[in-house]
Amino acid sequence: MKVVLLGPQRHDPNLGATVRSLEFQGRVATVTAGWQEREADDAELCEHLGHRCVNLELYRRASDVFRRDPELDAAHQARQERLHRMQDLYTIRLNHAADACHALASSDAPDTLKLQELAGAVEALRTLDREHLGHVAEVHAEFVVRFRPLEREGVASMRGELAAILRDVSALVVAGGHVAVLLNRLRLFGIVELLGDRPVIAWSAGAMAVSERVVLFHDDPPHGPGHPEALENGLGLIPRVVPLPHARYRLHLDDPGRVSLMARRFAPAACVPMDGGARLDWNGAALWAPPGNYLMEESGAIRELAEASA
């Protein structure tokens, strides 16, 4: 499957140019569920797509399903509450583990001593992320086994409609917004399984949702230390990439310590800052990016991605 990740579209849109470069025939399907109540406000998006689009309305559909299926609604809410609490507990461990990494990195001890300790601290962080993602995946799996969402009447009926729409489109476009809301709706209706080999274009939260692992990040939040958090596994449509939308705004890209820790923590996946105009392609075998796209290096530097491959 071909997947194209883009930077945020509001101020420096390259969606239209990307779609034209891919030479799609016919309509494309759009997902704007991350916009929640504003899901239907997609006039500007349709304009970028030359008005050849159909919105899958996953947010509206999910709301309808939950309204008609109180048991699923209650189960969904209970699962989200459980995940929320798990995230809080994970964050307690995360803050200590990440603080240890930063303290070691800034220590004035000789490199021969501190690098070994730092390597251990980074590995502890990676283990913590791995464990957390595993626990979250178990919760999702348990939900599927117990409540069988795809087999429930409301979901199955909507899914039939979605399958019919997707049969007639040449690609899927996934916009940003609230990443958990978006990912939950994509999962609820099993969109990936309906896609076949149709290409996917996604940006911001959409790019995060289709990657292997969703990482939340902001180096300078109003409260708290601002350590990146692993949220859950994504849809895994593009391998070994952690997309970082609005990176220039959200991250201290000029802080080699933070850049290095992020690169080491999520390796072998590449942490890719994705600001306006960014583009990264996966053709099913290799990554490709045009000039002007970057990745974080373990050295703490920001390096331009090679044009041929990443």
Binding site: P8, R10, G34, G176, G177, H178, V179, A180, V181, S204, A205, M208, L216, H218, P221, P222, H223, E229, P245, H246
Partner: peptide, 18 residues
């Protein structure tokens, strides 16, 4: 105001990437 209001009403900063 940022410190106060964002503590009383935390925004969706962590979860929303437009």
């Amino acid at each position: 105001m940022r410190e106060g209001l964002s503590w009383l009403f935390p925004g969706p900063l962590r979860m929303v990437y437009e």
